[in-house]
């Protein structure tokens, strides 16, 4: 499903977001590149602390000090968002690109009614007045499947359940019909049954509105269900990127293989789940070579020496399937032991 015929809606090129802390420079996002095409759902997967949330906040340019975007381009509709002034950027946020978050109940302001919070977005971006804004808010609440929307519109966030609050967040995010929706762990804080409802709702609204979605999650199940393409992140880098089916059928990167292997499968009896040994590296002192090398079982299996010294590039080994691993690429004095089919 490589959409080479279409122009990407969003192109992130070599994005670097560093945090200048007292303990040193944390390279939370280190040279990340990916594209999002119109109407598609891109999943970004990785463990906590791999830089996926920082990537999304970087796209919104909501990185607060000591964090800073040091390098790269974020091309949205051909324009580099990093070149915009702060006031131009406020016209993009919530209007062209909007975002929903992990904790819906704390993401809503506790002292305002939900219709006021939705109307606020319409007011700043679409010049809705107070009355029209509230009326539209009720329509939006109906659209996201909130029963008794007229009454719920006047509720405060603490009067809503987590699932309801996330629906309100989605209504707010989609109020201005954005071209891109960034969903940062949208279902992580919700019950499993509610998760499914929210995912259904997102899928439904995306096909109605044609909004592109970046779905950030650590849950491969959610990715398999929602995404068309997937980028796997590890320690601030994209390590593998492919369409969703090839990725699950033939994961190339040892990290992706480990992630998929660690999913419990219902009905399948296992002594213990496969785990990836070790933990995410400290982002201040990163290993010189491949960042996954210290935890990599394949490296030991194939006896690769280059991994700890030289960093592999993200290379397209099969059309549409990119991977950052020495198992599949040659270098001076290094012969790749595997070839992707």
């Amino acid at each position: 499903m490589a959409k080479t015929d279409q122009k990407p809606l969003l192109e992130v090129r070599n994005l670097k977001t560093y945090f200048y802390t007292e303990d040193g420079v944390v390279s939370a996002v280190d040279g990340v590149s990916f594209e999002v095409y119109p109407g598609e759902v891109l999943g970004i997967v990785g463990e906590s602390g791999c830089g996926k949330s920082v990537t999304s906040l970087s796209i919104m340019r909501l990185i607060a000090p000591p964090g800073k975007i040091t390098e790269g381009e974020i091309l949205f509709g051909g324009k580099n968002l990093l070149d915009l002034s702060e006031s131009e950027m406020t016209k993009v946020r919530g209007n062209k690109i909007s975002m929903i978050f992990q904790q819906p109940q704390t993401a809503l302001n506790p002292v305002f009614q939900v219709d006021d919070q939705i109307a606020e977005v319409l007011n700043i971006h679409k010049d809705f007045g107070a009355e029209a804004g509230k009326a539209r808010a009720i329509e939006l609440l109906k659209m996201v499947g909130i029963p008794d929307a007229e009454r719920r519109a006047e509720a405060y966030p603490h009067e809503l359940s987590g699932g309801m609050a996330q629906r309100v967040m989605i209504a707010m995010a989609l109020a201005c019909v954005p071209e891109l929706l960034i969903a940062d762990e949208p279902t992580t804080a919700l019950d499993v049954t509610i998760q499914a409802q929210i995912l259904d709702l997102m899928r439904d609204l995306r096909s109605k509105m044609g909004t592109s979605v970046i779905l950030i999650t650590h849950d491969l199940g959610v990715v398999a269900e929602m995404a068309e393409r997937v980028a796997v992140m590890y320690a601030g880098e994209v390590v593998e990127q492919a369409d969703v089916n090839p990725l699950f059928e033939q994961p190339l990167h040892p990290y992706t293989q480990g992630l998929i292997g660690s999913i419990p499968v219902l009905g399948q009896l296992k002594e213990r789940l496969d785990v990836i040994p070790g933990s995410v590296p400290n982002l201040v002192n990163l290993p010189a070579g491949c960042r996954f090398a210290p935890r990599c079982l394949s490296r030991e299996k194939f006896g690769l020496k280059i991994c700890t010294d030289v960093k592999p590039d993200l290379t397209e080994v099969i059309p549409g399937h990119l991977v950052r691993c020495w198992l599949y690429q040659n270098a001076e004095g290094h012969q790749a032991p595997l070839k992707a089919k």
Binding site: R93, G94, S98, F101, Q103, T106, L108, N109, I124
Partner: peptide, 15 residues
Amino acid sequence: RQDYVRTARAKGLHE
């Protein structure tokens, strides 16, 4: 540090 402040910024509100 609250989430709703981040939401408010993500909505496109001026600081």
